[in-house]
Measured scan of single mutants.
Amino acid sequence: SKGEELFTGVVPILVELDGDVNGHKFSVSGEGEGDATYGKLTLKFICTTGKLPVPWPTLVTTLSYGVQCFSRYPDHMKQHDFFKSAMPEGYVQERTIFFKDDGNYKTRAEVKFEGDTLVNRIELKGIDFKEDGNILGHKLEYNYNSHNVYIMADKQKNGIKVNFKIRHNIEDGSVQLADHYQQNTPIGDGPVLLPDNHYLSTQSALSKDPNEKRDHMVLLEFVTAAGITHGMDELYK
């Protein structure tokens, strides 16, 4: 796709999030870079409003799984890469995230190029959380598991539907599940690639910047598309 050509090198990323969870309002600002050749993201996020009212790991899918245009699609799968094909005009990404036995996040993001920078601007609203639950009670460990993110075409809306389940580790050794339902639709009216069913395999590492006084998260992530085999004719070339 034409959009794919915008991702040949390292691309700067800007992320802006405004959130409200159970009436606790907050903002997060992030910057870093993405390299789609390797499916690599390096980002640093800062809570610009003081202390973040929710655990950082609960925002990873909104912040970095928010820029799935940096996923590495192998050559034989490039015609299934909706995310890059929607660029530079970008796409709207909407999600509902259900935390098992707790509340939910609803998010709406616009992901697009502004100049040479890929920008992810998000509004997040969280409701029905227990004040002493795993999320508002800050009981999650500061780490992140690997996940597969399942993608299918949504021809009606000229976009994709995505769903997956995140496993958050809790300090007591148990797990907090979070079910994600995602819809992506193009902002522009140019042609986009509608994929066959496949998935993104994601690995994320969270860390801290020892010199950063503000509440923050440093993230390194690798994302690769998989799940579609080479056609038989490919094998015999």
Rank of each mutant, 00 (worst) to 15 (best):
K2T: 07
K2R: 13
E4R: 14
E5R: 15
L6Q: 08
F7H: 13
T8P: 09
G9V: 03
V10M: 08
V10E: 04
L14Q: 13
L17Q: 00
D18N: 14
D20G: 01
D20H: 05
N22I: 02
N22T: 01
N22S: 05
G23D: 03
H24R: 12
K25R: 09
F26I: 01
S27C: 13
E31V: 13
G32R: 00
G32S: 00
G32D: 00
A36P: 10
A36S: 07
A36G: 10
T37N: 14
Y38F: 13
L41R: 03
T42A: 12
T42P: 01
I46T: 05
I46N: 02
T49I: 02
L52Q: 00
V54A: 01
P57S: 08
L59H: 01
T61A: 14
T61P: 14
G66V: 00
V67M: 14
V67E: 05
F70S: 03
F70I: 06
F70Y: 03
S71C: 14
H76P: 04
H76C: 08
M77R: 05
K78M: 07
K78Q: 11
Q79L: 11
Q79H: 13
H80R: 05
F83C: 05
K84E: 01
A86G: 03
M87R: 01
E89D: 09
E89G: 12
G90A: 00
V92I: 12
V92A: 06
V92D: 03
Q93R: 00
Q93L: 01
E94G: 03
E94A: 09
E94K: 08
T96S: 10
F99S: 00
D101Y: 05
D101V: 01
D102G: 04
N104Y: 15
N104C: 15
Y105H: 01
T107I: 02
R108C: 07
R108P: 00
E110A: 07
E110Q: 15
E114G: 02
D116N: 15
N120I: 02
N120D: 02
I122T: 03
E123V: 13
K125N: 15
I127T: 14
I127A: 15
F129S: 00
F129I: 07
K130Q: 11
E131K: 08
E131A: 11
D132Y: 05
D132N: 03
N134Y: 12
N134S: 09
I135T: 04
L136M: 15
K139M: 10
E141G: 09
E141A: 10
Y142D: 04
N143I: 09
Y144S: 08
N145I: 10
N145D: 12
N145K: 05
N145Y: 10
S146G: 08
H147P: 01
N148D: 10
N148T: 10
V149I: 15
Y150C: 07
M152R: 09
D154E: 06
K155E: 11
Q156H: 10
K157E: 14
N158I: 04
N163D: 12
N163G: 12
F164S: 03
F164V: 09
K165M: 15
K165E: 13
I166V: 12
N169I: 12
I170T: 15
S174C: 13
L177H: 11
A178P: 01
Y181H: 12
N184D: 07
T185S: 09
G188S: 11
G188A: 02
G190V: 15
L193Q: 10
L194V: 05
P195A: 07
D196V: 11
N197S: 14
Y199D: 01
Q203H: 15
Q203R: 11
Q203L: 12
S204A: 09
A205G: 04
A205S: 05
L206M: 10
K208S: 09
K208R: 08
N211Y: 12
N211K: 11
R214L: 06
H216N: 04
H216D: 00
L219P: 00
L220R: 12
E221A: 01
T224S: 14
A226S: 07
T229P: 12
T229I: 07
H230P: 15
H230Y: 15
H230Q: 13
G231V: 15
M232L: 11
L235Q: 13
Y236D: 14
